[in-house]
Design a protein around this nucleic acid. Structure first.
Length: 257
DNA sequence: ATGTCACCTGGTAGGTGA
């Protein structure tokens, strides 16, 4: 079973690239972030024509998430139960016995801002809910744009980024709190190339200079850890003519289907 | 280099968010 996450930065713009990518990478599950579409505008027909079932949770202008799967996803949940939030950031469903949580975690803007405090509250709510969700569904995958670079090795220039948004101790603490629930960063279960990033700013020729951060992650629960046989970042779509600023991350799980 | 991209409002640009 292959699962992937991709922040597409507007599905209206990136839909052709998503469909092309799925032809070349026929994963079983793909979660998308920053669809930036109200639900009425979601391109359901195009995605179904490509051979995928799809669930989505959107809003006007910002955020928005989707869950694409070869086989039907059941028990769909949108956002974090019990956490009142006008922003569309989470979609969850069960696919072939795996509980898949796709998330677009808040960016947080800068430490000390209201948006940063919202990010902290949001991560606390996510952790509290996931603790219960993992108990109910031991085979669980949490993946998406976490907007956190967990360690210095996930940052092209750790000294320049120290204390900056995506790299603060508080954000890294929130990431570790999730790991503390019994989740594992699939990417770090394997030896990886140095300077592996999943996001490069559109500015400053950052991609050409490989100045990026690893902020898109696939976390697997204890029950799935030994099933993970690979996890890679696919930089190819970042080389497209009109790319998202994020690259897809893909994990392979050796489980019965 | 405050350097790009996407979206909005409300227009033939400016603001917001990332």
């Amino acid at each position: 079973m292959k699962l992937a996450t991709w922040n597409v930065n507007s599905l209206a713009v990136r839909l052709p690239q998503v469909l092309d990518w799925l032809v070349a990478n026929p994963v079983d599950v793909l979660v998308l972030q920053e669809t930036k579409l109200i639900d009425d505008k979601f391109p359901r027909a195009e995605i179904e024509a490509a051979g995928y079932r799809v669930q989505w949770h959107g809003q006007k202008t910002y955020n928005g998430v989707a869950l694409l799967s070869r086989s039907e996803a059941t028990d769909i949940v949108k956002n974090i139960p019990g956490h009142d939030d006008p922003q569309a950031r989470v979609i969850t469903g069960t696919v072939e016995g795996v509980r898949v949580v796709g998330g677009y975690m808040p960016n947080g803007q800068a430490p000390g801002t209201d948006k940063f405090e919202y990010k902290m509250q949001w991560f606390r709510a996510l952790r509290d809910w996931l603790r219960e969700e993992i108990a109910l569904h031991p085979r669980l995958v949490l993946m998406g744009d976490f907007n956190v670079a967990p360690e210095d090795r996930d940052v092209h220039d750790p000294e320049a980024w120290r204390g900056q948004i995506l790299c603060t101790d508080e954000e890294r603490g929130q990431f570790r709190n999730l790991i503390g629930l019994g989740l594992h960063d699939a990417f770090r279960l394997f030896e990886q190339p140095q300077k592996s990033w999943s996001w490069w700013d559109y500015r400053n020729l950052a991609f050409r200079r490989n100045q990026g951060l690893r902020i898109d992650h696939i976390l697997v629960s204890n029950a799935l850890r030994d099933a993970v046989s690979a996890c890679t970042i696919d930089k190819l779509p970042r080389k497209n003519e009109r790319p998202s600023d994020h690259a897809p991350v893909v994990a392979t799980l050796e489980i019965d289907r």
